[in-house]
Design a protein around this nucleic acid. Structure first.
Lengths: 132, 132
DNA sequence: CTTGACCCTGACATTAATGGCAGGGTGTAT
DNA sequence: ATACACCCTGCCATTAATGTCAGGGTCAAG
């Protein structure tokens, strides 16, 4: 299978497939004319790569356990768990941060609504509060 | 006040202060030797800029309403509300996306725990589910 | 032989705010 | 004058995956 077909089958752009190769995630053979030749298993492999990318893992992290998860169930690959745990910690921190900002924004939007109709006992002062 | 002092007072790096100027957020005078001379009001102005940056707004968005909010309470500046609303929509989408990923990660981590002790009636198969 | 659909490599762009360096001027105190 | 603390501009780097050129082979069908 050549790169165009693999791209069509997996939804990954040709550019991305070449990038995965440069990152050591996949290693197609080369035909005598220099064209990449992918084995049929590459299709599953690329889907797996894209799945982990969607989870927010980097190509470097994926490279660390891809061989393992391709050959057996993920839960048997001890390299995977710490990656998941650290990613989870990241995400939770991001969610916490975004939630703080969201709450701040909703408060501020609400104070527009209050201000535009009538001051309902609220301070008219510019209240730019931090919530760190 | 020169740039070093303003930097010390506000916590913004000198580099950042020059960047804010390049983005049209602040316009110090120049002394005959080319040094920037900031008015005392600049301190408040920079704090305001940094506050909005922490809310995740871009310098371009801030430029759109900074003059207004510096001279009156934020809630009187009609340019601000749509910016807040669109930023809020962004943030909520990001939170939703991160939450999906987080839930996926926690599920997968949980299945490690199940797998490592004994299969408790769970499928041993690699269950890589999507949750879109 | 030409057309058209493939494939190749290499390189630059993207995003936004910030860090950091090089090379150089200014100003004050010793 | 020399040292030292400032200031200036301009430029490159950062991050990670992807898009998008340019410039060039390959190969089948007509």
């Amino acid at each position: 299978m050549k790169i165009g077909e693999l791209s069509r089958r997996t939804g990954a752009s040709i550019r991305s497939l070449r990038y995965y190769e440069a990152q050591g995630l996949i290693a197609p053979l080369r035909e005598s004319n220099g064209y990449r030749e992918y084995s049929p298993l590459a299709e599953e492999q690329v889907r797996t790569i894209r799945f982990y990318l969607q989870l927010g893992l980097t190509t470097e992290q994926i490279a660390g356990f891809l061989n393992c998860v391709l050959s057996r169930p993920e839960t048997f690959c001890t390299e995977v768990l710490p990656v998941y745990e650290s990613k989870l910690a990241d995400i939770e921190a991001q969610i916490a941060q975004l939630t703080r900002i969201r709450d701040n924004l909703t408060d501020r939007i609400a104070s527009f609504r209050g201000e535009s109709q009538q001051g309902e006992g609220e301070s008219m002062r510019d209240e730019r509060s931090e919530r760190r």
